[in-house]
Design a protein around this nucleic acid. Structure first.
Lengths: 115, 115
DNA sequence: GAGATACTAAAGGAAATGCTTCAGCATCAA
DNA sequence: TTGATGCTGAAGCATTTCCTTTAGTATCTC
C-alpha cells in the first residue's frame, strides 16, 4: 500500500522547536550528520537525556536516524520544517493584508488629514 | 550582520505556537482585533482558560492587548513571528547548502556513471 | 574472551502546562 | 441601583516535560 501522508500535526514540531537544547542540536546537524554522542558532546546533560531529545525530534519528523553497528547517526529532514515555516509565513502575510485593508479603510474614511 | 537588540528568546514563541488553541486564536486575529470573549467563542474551554492562553501569547510577544472599559482587545504583533520564521529559514537554507556540498563531494569523489 | 564504547530502557522526581471551579471586581445598560 | 457583562486572580488537579540515576544490551577493539 502506498504511504499516503496524513497532514502531520504542527503541535509536535513547534513543541520540539521550543527547547533550546533541541534547537542547538538541529543547528549542529546543519553541518552534517552526527551521532548521538556527537550531539551530546557540547550539551550540559547526560547522554540519556540527549537520547530522549532525539526521540522528540524524530517523533516530530524533524530528524531521521539509523543505527549502524552501535552508532546511531542523525540527519535533518526539512519537510516538516518547511510546513512550520509556511504556517508562520501564511499567518504573517494574512496579518499584513489585514493591516493594509485597515490602512485603506482609514485613508478612505478620513481622507487628506494633515498630521 | 547587525544585532540591534538583545535577542528575545525563541523558546516562549515556539512554546506558544505549539498549542492548537493558541494557533487558532492567532489565525482568528489575522481577521482583525478581537476581545477575549470573541477569541473564546469558538473554543471548547472556559473564558478563564482563554485568558491564560492570551497571557502566554503576550508573554511570547505574539500578541499585544489593551483594555478599554471592561473589554480587552487583542491584536497580533508580527515581530517575533518574523524572527521565528527567520530561524527556521536559516536552518533550512543551511541544510540545503550542506546537502549541495555533499552532492558536489560525491560527484567529485565518484565521478559520473561508471563503476 | 575481556574490556571499552555507544547507546537505550526504565523508574522516579521537580517543575511546567493546560485545564477546571469559584470568587471577585469593574464597567455598562436599564 | 440593580443586574448583566467581561474579564481576572487564586487554588487545585491531572498530565506532560526535562532531567536524573541505574542497569542493562549490542558492538567494536584488543
Amino acid at each position: 500500500m502506498l504511504q499516503h501522508q496524513a497532514p502531520p500535526s504542527l503541535d509536535p514540531v513547534f513543541q520540539a522547536l521550543a527547547d533550546p537544547s533541541r534547537r542547538s542540536m538541529l543547528e549542529r546537524l546543519t553541518l552534517g550528520p552526527a551521532s548521538v554522542s556527537q550531539l551530546a558532546e557540547p550539551l550540559p546533560m547526560t547522554l540519556a537525556a540527549v537520547g530522549q531529545h532525539i526521540a522528540v525530534l524524530e517523533a516530530a519528523g524533524l530528524v531521521k536516524s539509523q543505527k549502524v553497528g552501535r552508532v546511531r547517526t542523525c540527519t535533518l529532514d526539512t519537510t516538516v520544517l518547511t510546513q512550520a515555516e509556511k504556517w508562520i509565513n501564511d499567518l504573517r502575510v494574512a496579518v499584513e493584508r489585514q493591516l493594509d485593508r485597515l490602512g485603506v479603510y482609514l485613508a478612505e474614511t478620513k481622507p487628506a488629514d494633515e498630521a
